[in-house]
C-alpha cells in the first residue's frame, strides 16, 4: 500500500472517530451522572469514600487527644471488662472515667507515667473531659 493512500485512510478513520465522538458525547451524559468535573477521588471511588471516613475520623480524634487514645489492646480489654460488668452496670463507671482507658496504675512506673500522660483537657472545656476523652 502506498503511503499516501495509507495516510488518507488514517485521516478517514480519524474523521470517523471525530464524527462519532460528536454524536456520542451528548448521549453519554444521560447514561449516568458520573460528572467529569468531579474531583479525582470522587471519579475513582464515588460514594464509597464514606467507607474510609471512619478511619480518617479516628485519626483526627487521636490528633485532637494529643495521642492519648486507646490502642486495639486497650479496646479489647475494655470490651472484656464491659462484658463482665454487665450485671453491675454503673458501679465502676465513675471510677473508670477518673482513671481513663488505661485503668489503675499497676506499679510505681505506671503511676509516674500517668502524671506525664497527654490529656485532652486543653482541647475541651473543663468539666466535659470525662465525656469526650476516650475510655
Amino acid at each position: 500500500m502506498k503511503s499516501s493512500r495509507a495516510i488518507v485512510l488514517l485521516l478517514l478513520l480519524l474523521a470517523g472517530g471525530f464524527t462519532l465522538g460528536t454524536t456520542l458525547q451528548p448521549r453519554t451524559t444521560h447514561w449516568t451522572d458520573r460528572e467529569p468535573s468531579d474531583s479525582l477521588m470522587k471519579v475513582l471511588l464515588g460514594d464509597s469514600r464514606r467507607m474510609f471516613a471512619n478511619h480518617f475520623f479516628v485519626k483526627a480524634d487521636i490528633t485532637f487527644h494529643s495521642g492519648y487514645y486507646p490502642s486495639i489492646f486497650d479496646q479489647a480489654r475494655q470490651a472484656e471488662e464491659k462484658d463482665s460488668d454487665v450485671a453491675h452496670a454503673g458501679e465502676q463507671e465513675s471510677k473508670q472515667l477518673e482513671q481513663g482507658f488505661l485503668g489503675p496504675p499497676t506499679d510505681w512506673i505506671d503511676r509516674f507515667a500517668a502524671t506525664s500522660a497527654p490529656r485532652c483537657t486543653r482541647i475541651f472545656k473543663a468539666g466535659t473531659r470525662a465525656r469526650f476523652c476516650p475510655g
Binding site: F18, G21, Q25, W31, T32, D33, R34, P36
Partner: peptide, 25 residues
C-alpha cells in the same frame, strides 16, 4: 477533545451500583 478516544465515556459503573438508573439505550 473530539479527536482523542474518550475511554471515560465507557465508564458506566453507576449503572450497576445504583438501582435508580435505566439501562443504556
Amino acid at each position: 477533545y473530539f479527536v482523542i478516544p474518550h475511554l471515560e465515556w465507557f465508564d458506566v459503573r453507576d449503572l450497576v451500583i445504583y438501582n435508580t438508573w435505566a439501562p443504556v439505550p
